[in-house]
Structure formats: C-alpha cells, structure tokens
Design a protein around this nucleic acid. Sequence first.
DNA 1: CAGGTCCACTGGTAGGATAAGTTACCTCAA
DNA 2: TTGAGGTAACTTATCCTACCAGTGGACCTG
Lengths: 248, 248
Amino acid sequence: MFKAIQKRSVSDEVFDQLRNRIVYQELKAGEELPSERLLSEMLGVSRNAVREAIKRLQQARLVEVKHGGMTTVLDYRREASADLLPSLLFDQDGQIQVDAARSIVRMRQVLSPAIAADAAVNGGAATADRLDALVDDMTAAVAPVDLQRLAFEFWEELVDGSGNIAYRLAFNSLRKTYEPLWELLTQMLDRDLRKLDSFRGLAMLVREGKADEAAELARDYIDGSSNAINQFLDLYEQHTQNHLNNNA
Amino acid sequence: MFKAIQKRSVSDEVFDQLRNRIVYQELKAGEELPSERLLSEMLGVSRNAVREAIKRLQQARLVEVKHGGMTTVLDYRREASADLLPSLLFDQDGQIQVDAARSIVRMRQVLSPAIAADAAVNGGAATADRLDALVDDMTAAVAPVDLQRLAFEFWEELVDGSGNIAYRLAFNSLRKTYEPLWELLTQMLDRDLRKLDSFRGLAMLVREGKADEAAELARDYIDGSSNAINQFLDLYEQHTQNHLNNNA
DNA sequence: CAGGTCCACTGGTAGGATAAGTTACCTCAA
DNA sequence: TTGAGGTAACTTATCCTACCAGTGGACCTG
C-alpha cells in the first residue's frame, strides 16, 4: 500500500527541534533560547520561520516570550497540556518511555468507568443505538485492525454520550498519543477486543440508564486491557534493560 | 494592590478573534478561513501577524492549513485539547457556560480519588512531608484566599506524588481553567476548605501508603466540594434563565 | 551614589518579492 | 462526448530588509 508522504515545512522542522530539545531536557526550564536572529542564522532559515515555530512553542506553553527580553524555557511538567504526551512517549532513540506509557494507561483506566457511567445517565437511546450498530460491525469484523478501530469508535461514542466536554478534549489528546502505537496496540489487545459481550453489555446498560452497572462493566473490561498493556510494558522494560546491560 | 498590565500583541489579538469565532460557532467546522492576504487586509495588520496567529490555531488543532489550499476550520470537539477549556467556560457575554463548568467539576471529581490513591502508592515520605507542611500552613492561614491557594498546592503535591505525567498535564489544563474563577471558587469552597482533617488525613494515608483509604477520603472531600460548586451552578443557571426570560 | 541618559541588545510589525502547491477551467485530441 | 493535459489564478511557504518598541546594563552627572 501507499502512504501519504508527509511534507514538513521549515517552521515545523524548527518547532520539532526546539520542542525535542526541551522535552529531552537539553534545554532546561528557566534557560534562555538563543535570540531569534541567532537561531535563524544557526539553523539557516529566515527569522520568520523561527518566529512561527516559537509562536507554536508559546501556544504549547513550552516557552515564555517577553518583548525586549530573552525567550525562556518553561517547566513543561508544570505548564504544558496533555498535547505533549505524544512527544513524551518516546525517547530520542524512539524507545517507548515506559513510565509515560503506564501513566496514560492508568489515566484511561480511571476515566473509562466514569465515562461509561455518565454516558448511561446522559446518552439515551440515540447513543445506545449507535453503540449497538458499532457492536454489530464488530461482530462482522474479521481483521484485528478493524476490530480495534471499531472498539475505539465505540469509546468515542461513549465519550460523546457522556456529554462531558472535558472528557471529550482529554480523550482527543489520548487519541493523538495512541496513533503512533496503533498496530502495536492491536496486537496487545487482540484478546480483549474479542470480548464482544462487554461491548454489547455496555450498550445495553447505556440504553437502560444503569450508570453503576455500566461503570462496573467498563471497569472490568478496562482493567483487563490495562493489564494486557502493562504486561507488555513490563516485558518491554526488561528487554530494553537487558539491551542496555549487554551494551555496557 | 497593583496588577500587572497585560499587553496584547497584534498577533495575539488576531488569534483571539479567530479562536473566538471558532468556539462561538461563527466559523463552523469544515468552513474555510479567508486567505491570509484577505485577512491581513480586513484586520489592517501585516500578513506576518496573521500567519503567526494561524500557526497558534494550528498548534491548538482548531484549523488545518494546507500549502496551496484554503485553511479550514476543524471540529474542536473532536480535535482540540483540554487547553481549550478556558475559552469554552464563558460565552460571548462573559456568562459562565454551565454545561462546560459541570463537565470540569465532574472530571476533577473522577480523577481526584485516583490521584490520591496513586500518590499513596508512589509518593512516599517525601511527598507526605510536603503535604503535612502545607496542612501546617493551612492551619495558620486566616484569609480564605490563602487557604484556597494552599489547598490547591496540596493537590498539586498529590499530583506530583502520584508520579503520573498524564495526571500532571491534565491538571495543568484544569488549573488554567480555574484561574479566571479563582475568587468565585474561594467563596464557593469556603466551608469545604476548612475541613483540615481531610487534608491532614490524606497526608497521613499517603505516608502510610494506604491507597484505598486515601481514595475513599479524597472521594468524600471532593464529592463535598463538587456539590458546593454544582449548587452554585444550579443557582447561576436559574438566575441567568430568569434574566433571559425577563429580557424576552 | 541615586537618577537619568544612552546604547546595544531583545522581540514585534510591516511590506515586498519569489517559490511552491492547489484548484478550476479551458483546450484539444481520441 | 469525453478525458487528458495544460494554463491561469488563486492559495500558503519562505525569505529579505527595514523599522518600531521594550529591556537592561554601561556610563555619565548632579
């Protein structure tokens, strides 16, 4: 198959470089960025491109810009939003940062039962209909990747049904974080995604407005899939640890 | 007291205008922005300023820019991050959007017990020491606003103690959302903030590593303060509803 | 040595020129 | 008639230069 080639603009390149230097702690909180003129000279790009990159860093709350003064690096742990998670999930060598991954799994684990419960309260029959339709599709799906996609759409529908905009926006950031790991997740969750009874049951409980039972069922399902991911992360951690030892 | 005067640059102004038009649905998802040249002419600013504003909109995932094509508005419910919550919390007249506020209160309610539990597991004595020091300060505090600030720092410390970067980043967005409502929250939570036993108890349970009990105590506390906020929101909703009826 | 002035930086804004990509439409041959 | 290809008129992307505006330190000066 063909993949759409991604063209990276100059200002994107500058943004990525600076963001990486910040999240990899090569530029620490409180330190000053080189001046725009110096940066543009060092990188061989126009000052314009540098300014646009810095505007994005500012929007991501990674730097603080002061007219007339130097631009300083902020503490991303204190200032940045969940949008930064995709950048924190991998280190410079492309290895998964296990701590960050566990954090994300945990947050998903905590939010999911509440999402299901709130969807049961606020979703109504319309949400339940869409959920049932998705479960029908899941029943017919054969390829694991299709199942994974449909399961994700199921959760998206639950989030919408909860009517909670804060869940919705947090979920968006989590989705962006999952994307680079999509194939890997499909393998990890292969067994859990086949628990169609759970999905069907959730749709039913949403239809009946049974919040507590929906939360309970969601918890069961999510705890299972969280365990699957965490077991993978344990193995991954051992493997990379051994790899480091072998190289040392 | 003096307040730092906030100077808004031209590109900030352009960004605010465009972001507001998007969140207020004057520019709907799928619609096209005017071209950069047209925008800069309409707003009476340089194309540079417009481009910098659009770069920030792009970083916030409110628009999609395509080289050679028109820039289109994205569906912020599907794409944006929790960074957008402060903009969603107020409508064009500066009135609180009660649905958004309830969403935020709910998310805080769901996350807080888990934060406390994880802090109990991962925080250790160092976290407990800092928590106890904060409770000491709270005991000595007299002004409600100081109590509020210290209580917030207490939760920040719990989040740090949980060691969960996803909690941390989500919490950052929530903090940015609270900020414009700080004085109002101080009034609403006046009674709850005086429950120093809860704070002291949480510090103790973190020290002893008792996750379940910490979650339970956190839930008790957060449910109480959530009720207080929701009661205010109910009254606020009635009031604004009456106000609308009177004007009609 | 406090207070003010100046200067050498910093980021902010403007406008123009050109490159590169998209889109709609028009032309022309099969 | 239809479809392939080219063209024209847009769009965003990039760069350049010039100048405005704010900051902070050096350096006078009373």
